Amino acid sequence: MDRLQAMQVFVTVVEAGSFSAAARQIGVGQPAISKTIAQLEERLQVRLLVRSTHSLAPTDAGVRFYERARAAIREADEAELEARGAGAGLSGRLRVSAATTFARLLIVPRLPEFLARHPDIEIDVLLDDRVIDLVSEGIDMALRMGELTDSAAIARQIARSRRSVIATPAYLSRAGTPLVPADLATHEAIVYSQLGASWTFRRNGTEASVAVRGRVRLSAAEGIRAAVLADLGLTVNSDWMFAPEIESGAVRRVLEDWELPPVDLWAVFPTGRLASAKARAFADYVESILAQ
């Protein structure tokens, strides 16, 4: 029995929901499907499917085998494409996860160029600030910022951004411009919940930590942007998140002679399988546009 072919049959059965539907998709008789599944279960010494006259469902072992088999088939397809020199002609669906604001500002506007280079690729972009499970969501690659919490993640750093203290000219005109980190204690801070209300600065080997205060605390970068642009106060954020406004002068950096820890961008791939050629190509593209 061809192992990969048997895996493909099993995956088709699970996704089709019945032997007869799988047989129609594959173009063989239903007895051939039944025989392949029986041989696969005998080989593995485990029951993969629970069958009745009206329904079919994978067992717990079947669910685990389905996930692994689907990944193995996908990797085999990618290997064939690369062996045929198809890297320059990538095709199929690419699912990418990214933080909402980052993707809206810096990735989505640059998608036309990537799609023009690869006319046979379709992209699904899942915009979510949460760290999601890539395997269960069927994600090919995630763009994640900051420190990676999953030590087992397959990832590579593709960019780094400075962090700055940012405010609008209108707010600074009203509240004054801080000259040293300690001045921030008297300002209205817009606090990003994930970073907390203690900001640490460095300059010439000197470190200064400031506990800031503010009446606005937000859990998403989109809210931070809206609050800053509404002149509610100043904040610490990556320059990525205010790139258009920094360029136009709608916001200003302050305390520029003090450094904040930078933020890294990572391309993260599902654990347990090789990164697809499409995902690697998209990671390279994002790296190139941020380098500009």
Rank of each mutant, 00 (worst) to 15 (best):
E287Y: 10
S198A: 12
A230K: 14
G27K: 13
T177F: 01
L94Y: 02
P112F: 04
V135S: 09
P262F: 04
A72K: 03
R93D: 14
F65Q: 11
A142W: 08
A159R: 03
D284A: 15
V210I: 14
S97D: 07
R215V: 11
L44A: 13
L126Q: 06
D2E: 11
M145D: 09
E78M: 06
A185K: 14
R225C: 00
A283H: 04
R43C: 03
R117F: 05
E67Q: 15
R130D: 11
L115G: 08
S20M: 07
R163G: 02
E147Q: 11
A221N: 13
M241R: 04
A230S: 14
L260K: 05
E207S: 10
T168P: 12
E256D: 13
I123D: 04
A38G: 07
I246K: 09
S20P: 00
R253P: 00
L172C: 04
V9T: 13
Y192P: 01
I154D: 11
S20I: 10
V212N: 01
V210W: 10
V14I: 14
A267G: 12
R273Q: 07
A167M: 07
V236L: 05
Y171H: 10
E78H: 03
S173F: 00
V263S: 11
A189R: 04
R252Q: 14
A283G: 06
E15S: 07
G214K: 14
G138V: 03
R252C: 10
D257R: 15
V263Q: 05
F242M: 14
K278P: 01
A116R: 15
G196W: 01
L48P: 15
V13N: 04
A6K: 07
R43D: 13
A71C: 11
A76D: 12
A243N: 03
K35R: 15
F242I: 07
